[in-house]
Structure formats: C-alpha cells, structure tokens
C-alpha cells in the first residue's frame, strides 16, 4: 500500500480509539468502535486475506448487536 492510504487508515484507527475512550454515551462509543473496524479492514485486504475480510465484515455487526442488547437494558 502507498504511504498516504496507510497513514489515513492508521489515523482512522487512532481516532476511533480516542473516541471510544473519551465519549461518555454508550451509543457514541459503539459508533467509534465502528470507526476502528473501518480502519482495520483495509489492512486485512491489503495483505490479501479476502476471506478473513468477508468474515470480519459479517461478524463485527453481530458483536455490536450483542452489545446493543445490554445498552437497551441500561437505558430503561
């Protein structure tokens, strides 16, 4: 991969980490976690592991659903 895309996807991972740690609302934390996934998946694709990328893209929403089950209980 070239230098600029590498820097930008690394920036996305760092931004997502900062957002997940600093935000106080659980929903904003989940949105920042999705930003981390957006930064990691291009690195997986760049190494050529397309099967791993497909599996990750389908599994990440599943774990978000499981976390949302707890969020719904937490709010009410």
């Amino acid at each position: 991969m070239n230098l600029l895309p590498m820097l930008v996807f690394g920036l996305l991972v760092v931004l997502g980490t900062g957002g997940t740690i600093l935000e106080r609302d659980p929903f904003a934390k989940l949105i920042s976690l999705s930003l981390i996934a957006a930064g990691v998946i291009p690195f997986v694709v760049d190494r050529g592991y397309l099967d791993v990328a497909i599996a990750l893209a389908l599994i990440v929403p599943l774990s978000t659903f499981f976390l949302l089950m707890a969020c719904r209980r937490d709010r009410t």
Partner: peptide
Amino acid sequence: LTIIAAAAYFIGTTLESNAI
C-alpha cells in the same frame, strides 16, 4: 472476491447503523 468483500462490509455497517 473483492466485490463480495466490499458489499459485505457495506451491508454490515449499514445494518449496524440501522440497529444503533
């Protein structure tokens, strides 16, 4: 295979936004 990877990623993140 990248077409399927891109479509799976996009649909996955859309589902996630929908659920949130």
